[in-house]
Simulated assay, not measured.
Amino acid sequence: MQPVCIVIVGPTAVGKTALAIRVAQQFGTSIISADSRQCFREMTIGVAKPSPEELAAVPHYFINSHSIHEDVNAAVFEQYALQAVKKITSTHPVVVMTGGTGLYVKAFCEGLDDIPAVLPTVREEIAQQYELDGISWLQQQVAAEDPLYYSTGEIHNPQRLIRALEVKRSTGQSIRHFQQGKKAARDFRIVKIGLELPRPELYRNINQRVENMVQAGQVEEARSLLPWRSLNALQTVGYNELFDYFEGAGTLATAVEAIKTNTRHYAKRQLTWFRKDPAIQWFSPENAVDVLQYAQASTQEGN
């Protein structure tokens, strides 16, 4: 039987964790997280990490696996996840992956383009300037230096803008030159399941999750991480807004409202990303039985 990886995606606060645990328990297997922030040991409340009870219910990979001081990106995740799949499927024919970081899921399923390494001095210079002048500076620089990316890429995502600018300055070519879109071969089948809710319900979930995070100690967690706010791992909704508050911008109430707003925007971007993938079969998280049946049937196909 060819191994199968069931990939469960969707926007934040839609219910991926709970359903992924049910699917993993159905197959007696493990879960690989595809979340770019839950891997960091120092970040817990603000990244909606699975609870200790959920982590105990099913073995998890890429949770608490790295430090915020490590350089973790899609390429690192791809290699980590492929090794995890190899380990898990040596004893179980099915593995579950879940998360909302679209680029990580894409890297795992299809591989990444071979983009040359950037010069460390260039990366440091851009990071320092971004820290001083913000995203508007990034947008201006990318528009001037890599108009091809600026006209086709995500110009409101600082990490993507930084990446485009550092590649351009290091190689002299647009990052689009290296993005060939070739899909890597995998020695396991991939079944993709998407979870969605009506927008008002999803937004209510997001707002309630933010309130729960604050009650659980998110403000204190963010304050403890303030000395390292410039690290890439902490360029994250739920932390940036509180860092600004700590440094005198607005009130705690306005910071919390900003977290809710920015999280809703992030969820919308996640849905836009995943909607582009025709291989995803969509379900409501409330129809768990349908998801479980679909997952069971899908693992039998082609075997």
Rank of each mutant, 00 (worst) to 15 (best):
Q2N: 09
C5T: 12
V7M: 04
G10I: 06
V14K: 04
V14Q: 03
Q26P: 07
G28M: 09
I31V: 15
S33E: 13
P52L: 05
P59Q: 07
F62T: 02
V76L: 07
Q79S: 13
Y80A: 12
V85F: 15
V85C: 14
K87P: 12
K87F: 15
T89L: 12
T89P: 11
V95Y: 10
V95M: 15
M97V: 15
M97P: 11
G102R: 09
K106D: 15
C109P: 09
I115E: 05
P116S: 10
V118H: 06
P120R: 01
R123K: 00
E124Q: 03
I126C: 00
Q128V: 06
I135G: 01
L138H: 00
D146H: 02
P147C: 07
I155D: 02
I155F: 02
H156V: 14
N157E: 10
P158Q: 06
A164G: 10
S174C: 02
S174R: 02
Q179P: 06
Q180V: 11
I190E: 12
P198K: 06
Y203R: 08
E211K: 14
Q215K: 15
A222K: 05
R223C: 08
L225A: 10
W228V: 13
R229K: 15
R229D: 12
N232T: 15
E241D: 05
L242I: 02
F243A: 04
Y245S: 02
A253M: 10
T254R: 11
A258M: 10
T261S: 10
H265D: 10
Y266F: 09
A267T: 06
A267I: 04
A267F: 05
R269Y: 11
Q270D: 07
Q270A: 08
A279R: 02
F283P: 08
S284M: 06
E286M: 13
N287K: 13
A288K: 09
V289E: 14
Q296V: 00
Q300M: 05
G302T: 10
